[in-house]
Amino acid sequence: MSEIAGYAIIIIGALFNLFGCIGLIRLPDVYNRLQGSTKCVTLGTCSILLGVLIGSGVGPTGMKALAAIVFIAITAPTAAHALSRGAHKSGIPLWEGSVVDKYEEEK
């Protein structure tokens, strides 16, 4: 039973990974790409690891998967934050359909 639940969660996670990477292709500028793909890939990879944890139960595999979940959930947003800040500082403009850029106005 727990194996079937684990497999289902792994498939859902892989689907969200795919959505994130489609967003990487379809969204127009670097900030939107970073935003969509970071969210989807973080949840996707975390739920793949959660599926491994549920499928394998408490043991060496499950505990390492739990540590990896915490680790990914902390580092992925931080990396996105650093990349978006670096992109803005290096002068990459927002998409031409953007509404407002307070960061540029107040620098």
């Binding site: 969200f16 959505f19 994130g20 489609i22 967003g23 379809r26 969204l27 127009p28 500028d29 900030y31 939107n32 935003q35 969509g36 969210k39 989807c40 973080t42 949840l43 927002l94 998409w95 359909g97 953007s98 509404v99 407002v100 850029d101 307070k102 960061y103 540029e104 107040e106």
Partner: peptide, 26 residues
């Protein structure tokens, strides 16, 4: 909120027109 966010991104990405209205706010 992470689950809501992912469904939101999936909707925007799979929609044929890519409905976005982006900007940087303070």
């Amino acid at each position: 909120w992470v689950m809501v966010a992912n469904l939101d991104v999936a909707f925007r990405v799979l929609h044929p027109d890519v409905p976005i209205n982006p900007g940087i706010v303070k």
